[in-house]
Design a binder for these strands. Structure first.
Lengths: 188, 188
DNA sequence: GGTGAAAACCACTTACT
DNA sequence: AGTAAGTGGTTTTCACC
């Protein structure tokens, strides 16, 4: 050994330290640390929930704080993952999609996990699809779609759902009325 | 605005258990005049759909038009009812609502219309409720809720759904995963 | 309907408490 | 963590094409 014993030990400590720190940093990505929201945060969210395009000045006034504070607060909410995006509510009829439906899908028990994953990813990226809920219960997932007419519903179900080997059955219900109170973030 | 008229029509359809969609479209009162969207409108909507807080300047550039034009266009889309609002997507866990569920509700055939109307209006304004779909099919409507834990699901179902005399049965499914492509406007 | 220019307005940073 | 002030940029109007 060319290094004195003391230095060798020191290096060892450094190596140990490095090895210990790395997993801690990595795991923080997955572990959801609890977000603490105070009264002002909640007031900001309450306003933003239904008016995502409000100006910072108006938002500040609604929450009773200075505009600069509101600005910092909102960015903090985004950084902490509380606010995950700003969306525009669009009347589907205007897009020529005057009919909405809920399709419940039951998968075959024997379906391979990989094919289910690939299938669900395909489904949720189809243009007709507004939302997909993956469930534990009777249905394995339900799909909320907007289409032009009833034949387009049938077309969607036959082409993209029933045709899949993983799918055991589907159950379609026409949406007669729809009401939304808030927008939940997609699961990460 | 809760538009009792529409609900009444919906209830009527349910009671006759005939899946007819024609009566739902109100042909007597406000006929929905067709909205014509050109290519620029569609480009604006495509951008706004997933970024409701984009600056007017950036929106204009994305659509290849002048900021002043984009401004007029967007206001026109709002005036014509194509864009019905700007919303903020909020992570429900941050609000202490770490569990989501879908509850399918079947109504008793003999339930009186008035009680059903009052009931549905109550349900859709509950704080736990994210969305309500009124359906023609097995379930009469389904409710998407976000709550703190599984006991809160049970509490919600028992207190606000099962307790109602109009309700014949409920079917609850826990949401394991959720994906949203766009936000549809609540039916008017 | 689309645009450029001007005025009003706002976002965002900095310095300070 | 909150605020006030400043500046650089943006929204919004309007006359004109």
């Amino acid at each position: 050994m060319f290094l004195p014993k003391k230095i060798f030990q020191f290096v060892k400590i450094l190596q140990t330290t490095t090895v210990e720190m790395t997993p801690v940093v990595d795991s923080t990505k997955d572990i959801h640390e609890p977000v603490v929201l105070d009264e002002i945060d909640r007031r900001l969210l309450e306003v933003l929930k239904s008016d995502g395009r409000i100006s910072n000045a108006a938002l500040a006034e609604a929450a009773g704080i200075a505009p600069s504070t509101a600005h910092v607060r909102l960015r903090s909410l985004q950084d902490r993952g509380v606010v995950t995006g700003f969306l525009t509510s669009i009347d589907q009829r205007s897009l020529g999609l005057g009919l909405q439906a809920i399709v419940g899908v039951t998968l075959r028990p024997g379906a391979r996990q990989e094919s289910i994953v690939r299938f669900s990813e395909e489904v949720r990226n189809l243009p007709q699809v507004l939302q997909v809920f993956f469930l534990g219960g009777t249905d394995d997932f339900i799909v909320h779609i907007a289409v032009a007419d009833s034949s387009a519903i049938r077309e969607f179900v036959v082409e993209h759902l029933s045709a899949q080997p993983s799918v055991a059955s589907t159950r379609t219900s026409v949406v007669f009325d729809y009401h939304r109170n808030g927008v939940a973030a997609s699961f990460q």
